[in-house]
Amino acid sequence: MSTRALIVDPSAPASIGLGEIADPVAGSGQLLVEVVHASLNYADLNNAVSGRIPAGAPLGLDASGIVLEAAADGTGPAAGARVVLFADGAFAERVAVDVSAVAEVRDGVGLAEAAALPTAGLAALRSLRGAGIAPGKRVLVTGASGGVGRYAVQLASRAGAHVIASVGSPARGDGLAGAGADEVVVGLDGVKEPVDIVVETVGGPHLVAAWELLAPGGSLQSVGWTSGEPAVFPPYGTVGLPKTLMSYVNEFGAADDLAELVRLTAEGALVPGIGWRGSWERFAEAADALRGRRVAGKAVFDVKPQA
């Protein structure tokens, strides 16, 4: 038996192709999930060419679906439950995942919206937490029109911070004021006062400029690097009053934080932005739109046609 999946295929454009993998079998402490939706991240595009995921193996980190088989040890959601998951190999029709990788999706939250939560939502939630988000803090979010950025704007605003959303063009700022941004700026020239926290998703010269805006005692969370450009600091650029540049990567075992993101979405405090949606057979189109920064928010695949 086999199941379809988006796999690493070095012979395909961008090394991503639809293929077949062995039907998954749930091990101890695992669920078998039928995937209904999945969402695409820059990390998936990088994983296709970096060698981290071997040729023939499934890509993907974010998905939502229905539990086909509950965990044999009695932990986790029951069969038939709607769930969201954050785990390697999520771009497949069926996946076996650890109970610690899933959270139930509450009534009122669509599975497409749930699939848009994991990578970007976890990065925003955890980076702000790590930076010490609190009422009154000045928070700069770079690349604020992207998946992580939109979530960071909403979560920082909800925490009572003064939120500055930086985007690449005026059009990319659409909707950010409504999401909670107190200021929407193009680039960083419009930021006139120091900030306490930076959620930095662009990298390159943008990261250097954001570092220079950081107040003493502040924290820059380096969450992404969509520019693909090097960051070159001027001499003594990192010498001075204490402030912190933190490297960031999403860690697995995210059930509790996934449940928090679902709860906030159910309550209307977090609104997943879906800027592209279509069949996973159109993955090349979605990848091109993501690379070209033509997706406001998240790109979501429909894996199960009738969903």
Score class of each variant (00 low, 15 high):
T3H: 13
V8P: 02
A14I: 11
S15V: 05
I16K: 13
G17N: 09
E20H: 14
E20N: 15
A26S: 10
G27M: 10
L32Q: 11
V35C: 06
V36S: 15
N41F: 02
A48N: 05
V49C: 11
G51N: 00
A55Q: 10
P58C: 10
P58V: 07
A63L: 12
A63C: 15
P77S: 12
A78E: 14
A79V: 13
A81P: 11
V83M: 12
V83Y: 11
V84W: 08
G89S: 09
F91Y: 13
V99G: 05
S100K: 14
A103Y: 12
E104R: 15
G108E: 11
L111K: 10
A112N: 10
L117P: 03
L122H: 07
L125H: 12
A131V: 08
G132C: 05
G132P: 04
I133E: 04
A134F: 11
K137T: 08
T142V: 00
A144P: 08
G146V: 03
R150T: 10
Y151M: 15
A152F: 00
A152T: 00
S157A: 15
A159R: 10
G160A: 04
A161M: 04
S166L: 01
R172M: 09
D174I: 11
A177I: 12
A179K: 01
G180M: 09
V184C: 05
G190Q: 00
V199D: 06
E200I: 02
V202A: 10
G204Q: 04
V208T: 03
V208M: 05
A210I: 02
A210L: 00
W211F: 12
W211V: 09
Q221C: 13
W225K: 11
V232N: 12
P235S: 01
P235I: 03
P235D: 08
Y236R: 15
T238H: 14
G240H: 03
L241N: 13
P242F: 11
K243L: 10
L245Y: 01
L245A: 10
E251Q: 15
F252N: 13
G253K: 08
A254G: 09
L258H: 12
L261H: 05
R263Q: 07
G268I: 01
G275W: 04
W276S: 06
R277M: 14
G278R: 00
G278N: 01
S279K: 09
A284Q: 14
A287D: 00
A287L: 08
L290K: 09
R291E: 12
R291Y: 02
A296T: 15
K298T: 04
F301R: 01
F301E: 05
F301Y: 10
V303M: 03
V303G: 02
V303L: 11
Q306N: 15
